[in-house]
Simulated scan of single mutants.
Amino acid sequence: MAKTSWHELPRGVRDAVQRELGGVAGVEMISEGLSSDVTFVAETGLGRLFVKGARLDDDLKARQLRREISINPYVTHLSPEIRLQVEEAEWLIVGFDYVEGRRADYSPLSPDIPLVLDLLGELSETPCPEIPLRDAGRLRESHARPEDLHRFSGDALAHTDLNPGNFRITSDGRAYLVDWARYSRGAPWIDATAFAMCLMTCGHTPYDAEGIMAALPVWKTLEPGDLDAVAYYQSAMRSAWQPRLDPWTNASVAAARRWFDYRVGLEVGL
């Protein structure tokens, strides 16, 4: 479905946004971002902002955007800060500090990987806030083995959606983590193993991906059997997906199967 443009928003929404921002001098529409009905960069009285919004009658998108609002105050050392919240004429509009950066590169030998690891290290030290969070163990009930569900639960904050588009790399070598709609509470290694899955999707072998992640202190919190449980879950979950046209999805399905086969091979001594 095509995104709504700035000028297609109801007049009341545009007026409310301009009041909150001290005016909007210019807008650059952005097509990416499947979880929003409108996305654009705005030149405003508060500076340059990345703005996205959802229709309130789209329950999923509106709920995801409200989740981002809830978590933002606790993660502004890792992510752009929210400067705008407008709810008007059946729309929810949110504006973040704009980060001038590119999507991350996870391919083998990429200089972006240490930047992402540094940020994940900071995230692992971020206290889990006392707000409603989904439990990572419960979220995995449909595909994890029942005997493994307890492994995913815990008291650590997890972003969970670490695809390259959710990291912005700036020219001065800093990484920012965006799109917090899927955060949860879980085991301290949830994001570390999620990033390992992303590395494999981008061409790393399971052996190399696990070796890279071993640099993170939280990797040492893994108990025997945890990685086997994660690899099983990733393979079962992604194999259940319907075939899609985007290369990332197809590559991640193949990578998850390779990871599971690798872990099984370790178990039987292959």
Rank of each mutant, 00 (worst) to 15 (best):
A2V: 11
A2R: 15
H7L: 15
H7R: 15
H7K: 14
R11E: 15
V13H: 01
V17S: 01
R19M: 11
L21R: 10
L21N: 07
G23K: 10
E28P: 07
S31R: 12
E32A: 10
S36I: 04
A42N: 03
G45D: 06
L46C: 07
F50R: 05
F50Q: 08
K52Q: 05
A54N: 12
L56P: 01
D58A: 06
D59G: 09
L60V: 14
L60M: 11
K61H: 11
K61P: 12
L65H: 09
R66N: 12
R67C: 13
S70K: 14
Y74I: 01
V75C: 09
T76F: 04
H77V: 09
S79R: 03
P80F: 13
E81F: 02
E81C: 13
E81V: 10
R83Y: 10
L84N: 01
V86G: 07
E87A: 11
E88S: 12
V94T: 10
G95Q: 07
F96M: 08
Y98F: 15
R102W: 04
Y106P: 06
L109F: 13
S110W: 05
L115P: 01
V116L: 09
D118M: 08
D118A: 14
L119N: 01
L120F: 03
G121R: 06
E122F: 06
L123V: 01
L123M: 13
T126S: 11
C128F: 05
P129W: 08
P132N: 05
L133E: 02
L133Q: 00
A136C: 07
G137K: 03
E141W: 04
S142W: 04
H143W: 15
E147P: 04
D148N: 03
D148E: 04
D148V: 01
H150C: 10
S153I: 05
D155M: 12
A156W: 01
A156I: 02
D161S: 08
L162Y: 00
L162F: 00
G165Y: 01
N166R: 06
I169Q: 04
V178S: 02
A181C: 12
R182C: 12
Y183R: 10
S184H: 11
S184Y: 08
S184A: 15
S184Q: 14
R185K: 13
A187S: 12
W189K: 03
W189N: 02
A192E: 08
F195K: 00
C198P: 04
L199Y: 00
T201C: 11
P206G: 00
P206K: 01
A209L: 00
E210N: 13
E210F: 15
E210G: 15
A215Q: 14
L216I: 02
P217W: 05
W219P: 03
W219T: 04
K220V: 07
L227I: 13
L227A: 08
D228Q: 15
Y232L: 07
Y233D: 13
Y233T: 05
M237Q: 14
P243F: 08
R244I: 07
D246L: 10
S252M: 06
S252A: 12
A255T: 00
W259N: 03
R263S: 07
R263I: 04
V268Q: 14
L270G: 12
